Simulated assay, not measured.
Amino acid sequence: MVPGKKVGLKIWTFRLALLLPLAGMLALLEIGARVLAYQSDSELRRGLDGVGRVVTKGELSLQHIIRWHANPKLIYELIPNLSGSFRGQPLAINELGFRGPSVQPVKAPDGFRVVGIGDSVMFGWGVADDEVYMAQLGARLTQRLHGRKVDWVNAAVPGYNTVNEVETLERKLLQLAPDVVIVDHVRNDLYLPGFLQKRQPYFSLRQSFLADWVRNRLGGVHLPDSGLQRPPDAFRDQNFSGREVLIPEQYRQITGIEAFRRAVHRLAELAREHGFRVIVFAHFGVEPEPRAVLRDAGLELINGYPSIREYLSERGRADYVGSALTVSADDSHPSALHHRMIAELLVDHVVGGAKDAESAQVLQGG
């Protein structure tokens, strides 16, 4: 053999001797990362993970603050006892898994409790904890309802539709004995929820669990995969009324006008059974078909669009997005200013009903 070829062969042999153990070690680490991911995800699904976790380092994404839920009408929920920075704003989720301060399970004898169910708008996407309109409404009610202990619960979850919201009320909030339930209605309340359950590719070679683990560690967020994924784009912006066959089968019962109708009538039934008042707040009004459903159920509807139109008109603006009422020019979620306007709009309606209820109690007592 030519001496040069012998040297080249020795070099390649030496390289292989170094690379093969390294490749084997990486393969073992990858297998270990997949096993750990499976164990962690399994704990998450059993509800054993996520409780009591506090995250203070790194910016949280939406997938960091939610977890899978076994109830097919909920699909996912916020992780309890979690705090950090979300969309550049402080975020605190209480022990019940709702954004905001702790809530006493038993309402005070002289208490007045307002509960809100909704999606990212009521949740307060892009605003701080004390800027969300449920927090501001609670502060205004405390000033207006003298002598009563007012507390509030913001049970909104980003991406929820009306079925998810009513299920949250029935499964998690009735025991809190609300006096008023505010439903934040937006157009996509008839659409698929923001997340669906996903199947993890534990046996796929297209994804490196080791790389994902390293990336999360470097990012300062140490959370397992939520077991959730966004719906395909084709399903995210349509209500699919009359075309339910296009929706994944396991989600057909929670999407579309008939699912909305069932949820709304269940909400009205719960209100009668448990003696609370329902106020549906719609930022941009309600389209004819869902509005007819709300009317048939006898629910009170407040349209927030006139106040938006008045604000923009007074300032010579035509476009809502990019105005002071939105988080930014690229994000149409309500700004802190808009949340304050919503609270001011709602407080008169809530107080009026509360005083009517007090008068009725006095008359009955007399």
Rank of each mutant, 00 (worst) to 15 (best):
R291W: 03
F123K: 04
R272S: 10
G126E: 05
V293G: 02
L78N: 03
V7L: 12
R34A: 07
L22G: 08
D189T: 01
V103S: 05
K107L: 06
Q39F: 08
Q175T: 07
T13N: 11
H283C: 03
E314P: 00
G116P: 10
V181H: 08
G275C: 04
Q200G: 00
L9N: 11
V362K: 15
S226V: 08
Y202M: 08
Q197D: 12
A108H: 04
I302H: 04
I342Y: 00
D189P: 00
I93D: 13
D319E: 15
L28N: 04
V327M: 04
S102R: 15
Y251D: 09
R171K: 15
E59F: 01
G24R: 07
P306G: 03
H185T: 00
W12N: 14
R277V: 04
G227S: 13
F123V: 03
V132I: 01
R309E: 12
Q175M: 09
G316S: 09
S208A: 09
W213M: 14
G220S: 05
R277M: 03
P224M: 09
A23L: 15
N239Y: 11
G365R: 15
W68K: 00
R309T: 14
V51W: 05
N188Y: 04
L337Q: 06
R277C: 03
L205C: 07
V54W: 08
R261F: 01
N164E: 05
P201I: 14
S208G: 13
L246Q: 13
A324R: 14
V362H: 11
K149Q: 14
G118P: 13
S204G: 15
R243D: 15
A177M: 03
G159C: 04
A70F: 08
G52S: 11
R113A: 08
H349V: 11
G88C: 03
R171T: 15
A177C: 02
G220H: 09
I302L: 13
L16T: 12
M122I: 05
P201K: 06
P105T: 07
Q250T: 00
R113D: 07
R236M: 06
L299V: 15
G118Q: 01
V321T: 12
T255S: 07
S226T: 10
L210F: 06
G304E: 02
G47C: 11
Q207D: 09
H333N: 11
S208Q: 04
V121T: 10
S204K: 10
V280R: 04
R309Q: 14
L9A: 13
Y320R: 07
L48K: 13
D119R: 04
K198R: 12
S335D: 12
L176A: 05
L228V: 04
A92M: 11
D348K: 15
L218D: 02
V7R: 10
H69W: 04
E165V: 08
G50D: 06
R215S: 10
